[in-house]
Design a protein around this nucleic acid. Structure first.
Ligand SMILES: [Mn+2]
Ligand SMILES: [Mn+2]
Length: 550
DNA sequence: CAATTGGTAG
DNA sequence: TTCACACCTTCGG
DNA sequence: GAAGGTGTGTCTCTACCAATTGGA
């Protein structure tokens, strides 16, 4: 039995220090002077003080009542806080606006401090805020706000710095410090991939700063700040890293959509014109159309149809072009005949409105000899993920750079497949000679529970796997997997809701369920069409609720 | 006073 | 760090 | 009815605790 890191009550501090060591050894040239100074000074502090700082960094927000900080392993909070105050990492007199003050005061304390100004003392806490923030809009320190309260308020001043450290370690800002403990508890297990000390997410200081800046712009945008300033600043960024260029494109695209919602078409046009993010061109055409610029829209749409950026764009253009031709005075075009897909119409009683329509169809179609599974994207993606596990987790340079990655960092890049073409070919070749069956069974056991961008462990029971291997022909698997590899982002979704197996006949069929008011989405239509082309059994099931005689 | 919500910790 | 659905409005045959 | 558009619930790790809410 190896020693459990969680036996140490300072386990979280050990994890944090592990990150500091990691960054110092691998990111020495990326760390700023301030960050290097912090890393060195941090280690000199008393253990209780370091622990207290990490506890605060891991908690929500930056303001903490001393009375709310209570940790057995740290003991005396005031004593532990002393060196942190001296180092300037926390501050006791930071002015804070009343909105933030409200978050650290109890309802009773608010009444105690502001009772005289509150009109409805029995109302909700949140209802008091608007009127109070108008009267008291200046920021003050906690002791100025509430001199009658016998407590101190510590405010973290280094949250920004800690976020940058987190960004460098994880290569993103959505993973947090709890990753370590969740992994130690076995809640998440990650594939172990070898990588060298030179393998890093963010490779230079400029990229770190740009990433932080983009993130701040995103937050300012979400907070409702004027878009013109934000857009200008984003566009002024010099970005050499393609990954960051994509991030910028995504943010600009979101801002563009926001402008569309506000009917600010001129700003939307300006944004979309310089935006290479997938889908921006279609939005540009749409905004031109909404502005009445039919000829410009037509020119761009025609050009786009020559060189579509994706199947999704092409599909969209097939709807847009006839509409624009009409608006330009062209002849009314007959709509292309809808494909003759197999169609199922059902009238079912909705006994319990809480249950989904897919569940009712599943129950209605299922037979003892023909079970139905509600799988959506999970089945095909999981089978793909299992068969191609070695290619997906191949230790390519730069693909893996910390121990908590669900998948390679370049998974959604244009060249993801090309960089691993031989590996994927080898995996898919198992479909040609039957080896895949044993491989999938073995890998299902060997990798059970290990995080993967494709494998949905919760949805893939042994039973489902057995039936799928029994009934799905390898040629069909190969078509699906190749389609996935052509455009992972676009094709990993849109698969039918249900799949039914006939193990005795070794056949299957897929069923997309549509309740009243629902209709096929673009990505579902593309999967439908693809399966139809390859003579795969697929049907769309339209459900009407039959009258409930009460 | 019971139910709900949101934050924390391992 | 999503995906699919529900529900709404607008448009055009 | 087709199509565009917007909003929502779900993914989330979960047991536990304190604070709040809202109905007796
Ligand atoms: Mn579905
Ligand atoms: Mn469906």
């Amino acid at each position: 039995m190896t020693e459990n890191p969680l036996d140490d009550p300072f386990y979280y501090l050990n994890n944090f220090m592990q990150v500091l060591d990691w960054l110092e050894h691998r990111y020495g040239d990326v760390l700023s002077v301030e960050e290097q100074g912090f890393v060195q000074d941090f280690r000199r502090q008393p253990r209780e003080s370091r622990a207290l700082l990490v506890r605060m960094v891991m908690r929500k927000g930056v303001h903490f009542r001393a009375g709310k900080l209570s940790y057995l392993e740290i003991g005396d909070i005031a004593r532990a806080a002393e060196p942190l105050l001296a180092a300037g990492w926390i501050d006791e007199h930071s002015p804070l606006p009343i909105e933030e003050l409200f978050d650290v005061l109890l309802k009773a304390e608010i009444l105690q401090c502001f009772g005289t100004v509150i009109e409805q003392p029995k109302g909700k806490k949140s209802d008091w805020l608007p009127s109070l923030s108008e009267q008291l809009c200046d920021a003050q320190s906690f002791s100025q706000w509430c001199p009658q309260l016998d407590d101190r308020l510590f405010t973290l001043t280094i949250m920004g710095l800690c976020d940058r450290l987190r960004l460098m370690f994880f290569g993103n800002l959505y993973q947090d410090w709890s990753e370590f403990v969740l992994a130690d508890l076995g809640i998440f297990t990650y594939e172990k991939v070898e990588f060298c000390a030179e393998s890093r997410g963010l490779r230079c200081r400029e990229d770190v700063d740009a990433c932080v800046f983009l993130h701040q712009c995103q937050q300012r945008f979400e907070a409702g700040e004027a878009v013109a300033d934000i857009v200008e600043q984003i566009n002024a960024l010099e970005l050499s890293n393609p990954w960051l260029q994509r991030r910028r494109g995504k943010l600009l695209f979101q801002i563009g959509q926001h402008c569309e919602r506000l009917a600010d078409f001129s700003t939307a046009l300006t944004i979309y014109r310089d935006c290479a993010y997938p889908g921006a061109r279609v939005r540009l055409i749409r905004v031109l159309e909404r502005c009445g610029e039919y000829q410009l829209a037509m020119d761009l749409a025609t050009h786009a149809e020559q060189t579509p950026e994706s199947a999704a764009e092409h599909q969209h253009l097939l709807r847009v072009l006839p509409r624009l031709r009409r608006k330009l005075g062209g002849p009314a075009m007959k709509r292309p005949a809808p494909r003759d897909m197999q169609r199922l119409d059902l009238q079912l009683p909705r006994v319990d409105p809480a249950l989904s329509v897919e569940y009712y169809v599943q129950a209605h179609l299922a037979q003892d000899s023909a079970p139905v599974h509600y799988v959506e994207n999970s089945l095909i993606n999981s089978l793909f993920g299992l068969l191609c596990w070695p290619a997906i987790f191949a230790p390519l340079p730069g693909a893996f750079f910390h121990p908590f990655q669900r998948g390679p960092v370049d998974l959604l890049n244009e060249d993801f497949h090309a960089r691993r073409a031989g590996l994927f070919e080898a995996c898919l070749a198992e479909l040609d000679d039957g080896r895949y069956v044993q491989t999938l069974r073995e890998r299902y056991v060997a990798k059970w529970g290990v995080q993967s961008p494709f494998v949905f462990w919760g949805a893939l029971s042994q039973e489902l796997l057995d039936q799928a291997l029994d009934c799905l022909p390898p040629e069909h698997l190969k078509h699906w997997f190749n389609r996935l590899l052509m455009d992972i982002k676009a094709n990993r979704a849109g698969m039918p809701d249900l799949i039914q197996f006939w193990p005795q006949d070794k056949t299957y069929r897929m069923i997309e369920v549509k309740g009243p008011g629902d209709r096929l989405q673009d990505n579902q239509l593309r999967w439908l069409e693809f399966c139809h082309e390859h003579q795969m059994p697929i049907a769309v099931c339209y459900v009407q609720w039959s009258e409930q005689s009460a």
